[in-house]
Design a protein around this nucleic acid. Structure first.
Lengths: 208, 208
DNA sequence: ATTGCAAAGGGGAAAAACACCCTTTTTTGC
DNA sequence: GCAAAAAAGGGTGTTTTTCCCCTTTGCAAT
């Protein structure tokens, strides 16, 4: 039976083209192509779709690879997913692996190797060395990680809303927001809201 | 007769996938896929290959889109080429257009629009995304309305420095900085430093 | 010379952000 | 169920940012 694949990539042209390529492999079928994590989220929830593998672009505007992976890990811990990146940003990659991502591909891989990587992930579960992965996973998890609420909060920090307004929007006490802010300052070694905003932008926690 | 296309993109996976997509259009055929400008150069010279359109990635390691376009303009002034970019970097885009590039596509265009763009370039000679163009003009216009000092100041707003510290750095009174801030708030219809920081980042007044 | 105008600098008050230390409620893992 | 941990909320004081209205300086044009 052929393996089902879901592609998540904001570059529609690439996503659709990749679908064409994958479909040309006898033993793989692309079940869907989504533009961002949010679309995946919605469709994974309602449609009883459990693909053998999700190919996840890292840089996406609405809900990026990291966020999506974080969500996937919580909601569908067994779901296999693989990062698909443009440039290999080590930091983000490490985070992805830490979140249980099964491997990663840079987009300049050639189609043959790509096929091999797919086979490897679907069969063995991993594309790169298993032990290294597990090691990384343990290390990363203990490192910095944000709570759901903190991540949600990060989406507001690069707007012109005051903390009070953000609190209202999130239906929380301003004091709680103050707590998130404080917690993030410590975790990220940041001292001001501007620093937080820049971090959020850099790491795709918000769209500007 | 079907139109011939050449794709130049260092991301082999993307290039090959795109080839698949283009070949799926009845009236187009991909004659070749190259990894960079140099490959294109060599092949365009020796093989008597004159495609109807060259799709040119901008960011490539060996010989990038700009260089390639420059060479094309000299060697084959009539050759139609179109930029294919990941993120829309205005500056480079402007240069490309200056070099006679026939249009530009961001890679998150959807396949239908992509097809339309191809048709447009091959038929009319040009394709430019309207929104992108308007965005570009707006940004360019806005750049000239700041003073030298204000622009210098903008480079500091997305750091964690306080205004007082920025003033010290610029050897100005904090009150003067306050004036720049105020002036920029009015000009840009912004109400907070975060807004200013986001503006500065968006419009490349500072690097993050 | 004088008007004209923009950049630079200032005072002071109110709002927002930051910091630190603390309590209550809710989850979560045996 | 219970203890531990995480999330949410609180009090209070300091610093920074924001806002408005004001003075001085320098330069430029008629």
């Amino acid at each position: 039976m052929s393996k089902s694949i879901v592609i998540v990539d904001d570059h529609v042209l690439f996503g659709q083209s990749l679908k064409g390529l994958v479909d040309s492999f006898d033993d793989y079928r692309v079940k869907a192509v989504y533009k961002n994590g949010k679309e995946l989220q919605e469709n994974l929830r309602k449609m009883d779709l459990r693909p053998d593998l999700i190919l996840l672009d890292i840089r996406m505007p609405v809900m990026d690879g990291l966020q999506t992976m974080q969500w996937l890990k919580q909601e569908f811990p067994k779901q296999k997913a693989m990062a698909l990146t443009m440039e290999d940003d080590e930091e983000i990659l490490l985070k992805m692996l830490g979140l249980g991502c099964r491997g990663y591909l840079v987009k300049d891989i050639d189609p043959d190797k790509f096929k091999q990587a797919l086979d490897s992930v679907v069969d063995t579960g991993y594309y790169v060395d298993k032990e290294v992965m597990e090691e990384l996973e343990r290390k990363e998890r203990s490192k910095e990680q944000f709570s759901e609420r903190e991540i949600e909060f990060l989406q507001y920090v690069c707007t012109e809303m005051t903390y009070k307004e953000i609190a209202a929007e999130m239906r929380l006490s301003p004091k709680t927001i103050d707590g998130y802010r404080e917690s993030l300052f410590v975790k990220l070694d940041i001292k001001s809201r501007v620093g937080l905003a820049v971090y959020a932008i850099k790491n795709n926690f918000c769209t500007i």
